[in-house]
Simulated scan of single mutants.
Amino acid sequence: MMIVEAYFEDYEIGSERTTFGRTMTESDIVTHAGQTGDHFPHHMDKEWCATQEFRERIAHGTLVFSVAVGMTASVINPRAMSYGYDKLRFVRPVFIGDTITVNARIRDKREHPKRQEHGLVYESLTVTKQNGETVMVCDHVYLVERRSLERAG
């Protein structure tokens, strides 16, 4: 983990980073099912899944989201915090043995409508698996401290 102080003014639209890969395991799915109570057969029943379109167990969308977000958390910025996620979509399934990678790109910066001392930074996350298919997308919104109030106006 690395600490990097970056103010709202420091974020550049178009800058991006890509994570290392992470392979989804059966243990990931079973643990997530236990934590969330989501024991639907799509995730837990190998025999039932064999009769369905995808033919194998699917990782929970919320598991893919959680792992992907964790993969991007390699830098701590004491001047920013997560403000939430927008436009979350599970585009394709992730199966046991698939390796996911996350690309995070700063796509926009906006004034905060009520807080002059902060701005909003929008980071688009695109999660792909080993074959290049996109499996999940969303926008991560950061609340980021401004360097000075004089620049806010």
Rank of each mutant, 00 (worst) to 15 (best):
V4W: 10
S124M: 11
R92M: 08
Y83T: 02
S27I: 10
G97K: 04
A73Q: 15
R89Y: 03
V67R: 03
V127T: 03
T23W: 05
S148E: 13
R146L: 10
E12N: 15
M44L: 08
T19V: 05
L125E: 03
I13Q: 09
H39K: 09
G70V: 02
L63P: 00
F95A: 06
V75I: 14
V121G: 06
A33V: 06
D38Q: 04
V144Y: 03
T18K: 09
A104L: 10
I29N: 04
K109Q: 10
E12M: 15
S74D: 10
S82I: 05
E133A: 11
M44A: 08
T51C: 08
S74Y: 08
A80H: 03
I3F: 13
E12P: 08
Y122H: 08
F65V: 00
N131Y: 00
I76V: 15
H118W: 10
V64C: 11
G119D: 06
I76T: 14
S27T: 12
T31F: 13
I100W: 03
S82M: 08
E56I: 01
A152P: 00
A33S: 15
P93N: 02
K109C: 12
L88H: 01
K87Y: 05
V67I: 12
A73L: 14
R110A: 14
F54I: 05
R105S: 10
P78D: 13
T25R: 04
M1L: 11
T99D: 06
T99N: 06
C49H: 01
V137C: 12
R110D: 13
T31K: 13
D10A: 09
E26D: 14
E5Y: 12
T25D: 07
V91E: 11
A68S: 11
D45F: 02
I58G: 04
E26N: 11
F65C: 01
V141I: 15
Y83L: 11
S66L: 05
H43R: 02
N77M: 08
H42L: 14
K109S: 09
Q130M: 04
S15N: 14
Y83P: 02
T36E: 15
I100Y: 00
H42S: 13
G70N: 03
V141H: 07
T126R: 02
G97H: 06
L149M: 15
L125T: 00
E150M: 14
E56L: 03
N131R: 03
A50L: 07
E123Y: 00
T23I: 08
I3S: 14
A6S: 12
R110I: 07
A73E: 14
A50S: 14
K87V: 05
Y7L: 09
F8C: 11
E56W: 04
P78Q: 04
H112A: 13
A33T: 04
R105W: 01
D45T: 03
D28T: 01
V141S: 08
E133T: 02
L88R: 00
R146F: 04
E9Q: 11
G84S: 08
M81D: 10
R55P: 04
V30S: 09
S74L: 11
V102S: 04
V137R: 07
V30C: 11
D38H: 01
H32Y: 15
G132I: 03
F54L: 12
K109E: 06
F65Y: 11
Q52K: 03
S82K: 02
G21K: 01
T51W: 01
A68C: 02
V135W: 00
G84T: 00
E47M: 06
R79H: 11
E111F: 07
E16Q: 14
V91G: 06
F95L: 05
P113R: 07
A104W: 02
